[in-house]
Amino acid sequence: MTGWLGRLLVERLIRLAWLLPLAMAGLFTLVSLAPVDPITAYVGARVADVGPDQRAAIAQAWGLDAPAPERFALWLGHIARGDLGSSITFNAPVAEVLADRAGASLTLIALAFVISFAVGLGLGLTAAATRGRWPDRAIRGFAVVLTASPGFWVALLLIALFAVGLGWLPSCCAAPPGLTADEADLAARLNHLILPAATLSVVGTGPLILHSRARAAAFLESPAARHLAAHGARPGWLVWRPGLRHALGPALAVHLAGTGELIGGSVLAETVFAWPGLGQATVRAALGADAPLLLGIALATLVVVFLGNLAADIAARLLDPRLRQA
């Protein structure tokens, strides 16, 4: 392990050590103050048939009859032993729910990450290579439209065009009706993944286009690029050869740092397309006031965002020696 990497890991772990307790306290406070009654949400339409004694018994079984500080201390004790509690919504341990649904969410987020990075970097470099001409203006306008477009509107537009209008792609679930994701073949699973991944890839693509264009344009104004241009190098070659190496590191760092936005966008995408991941589970847990599951998902998200930011810092230093020296 090199010296700069060791120092970076120690620094980030120290930051996580004080950030995690604060985040846990804040998450528990927000969930405790939620206006939804978990018992009422659990019994649903049978709420009129549940008497006070039954409500008290349910509250005691779930530990809701204790004061909030006591429940928080009890929750921390369970977390320290590796027990995230039991989900009220799914009637299963939270760790089991996370394990069952994390794969679907990570697959969706990873594919959207690759798509948005390739599209954002490619269009940004293309805009830089055609500065001042119509492709540059069109790409910048496209980036602004993407940035301002609500995710649910993009999802509905894709469903209306490709699922309803053309009938090319399914608009729901991770597998054909009547089959689970494990029973469906790879082609069917990929077919169901296209629209959710396309919707989620919109998150971060617009800013990445503008960022990549700015970095590549700055390189074209540098003395090195001007020297190469004076010797006959074309703008397209400058952008896609040395300019690509100049813009790749910052673009990757910016995109990795936006992991939290992708996770937030996955909640919307999974809800619209009924994708069986943690985003859909988050919505169901929020509607049912499932505090253990909400807290478990929030902690898992915190760790993933932390790892994304750490990966962004490492990638930036690997691709730019000046940052390692600093």
Rank of each mutant, 00 (worst) to 15 (best):
F273M: 10
A34H: 03
D182V: 13
V239C: 15
W153R: 04
D53C: 00
A138Y: 00
G82M: 09
L228D: 05
G120Y: 04
Q325S: 11
V164D: 10
A102L: 14
F273V: 08
L302K: 00
L19C: 03
L238V: 05
V94K: 08
L299P: 01
V94E: 14
D182T: 13
P150M: 11
A174I: 04
V154N: 05
R213A: 15
S201G: 06
V303M: 15
V50A: 12
L98D: 01
F306R: 05
G165I: 00
V97H: 03
A66T: 08
F162P: 08
L157R: 01
L208I: 04
R137V: 15
V36G: 05
I14P: 00
A112Q: 05
D290A: 06
P67Q: 09
L179P: 01
L220D: 09
R226K: 14
L8V: 05
A257M: 15
A25T: 09
L22F: 06
P321L: 08
Q280D: 14
G279F: 02
A138S: 11
V239Y: 01
L268V: 14
R245G: 03
G151K: 00
F90K: 05
D37P: 06
M1W: 01
N91K: 12
F142C: 09
R245V: 13
L248D: 05
F306I: 15
L156R: 08
W240K: 04
W237F: 05
G258E: 09
P276D: 13
G296F: 03
T199A: 13
L252F: 01
L30W: 00
P176M: 11
S171H: 07
A198Y: 03
V114L: 13
I194E: 11
E70N: 02
P69G: 03
R241G: 04
G124S: 06
L293V: 10
G296I: 12
V10A: 12
H227T: 14
A218W: 02
L193H: 01
G178R: 06
V283I: 13
T301C: 14
A289T: 00
A247P: 06
A174E: 13
F117M: 14
G258F: 03
P67G: 10
R234V: 11
A198L: 15
R226N: 05
F28P: 04
L9E: 08
R137N: 14
R226P: 01
R322S: 13
F117E: 09
W168C: 07
T282M: 15
I263S: 02
A73V: 12
L166A: 11
L161S: 09
A187I: 12
P177A: 11
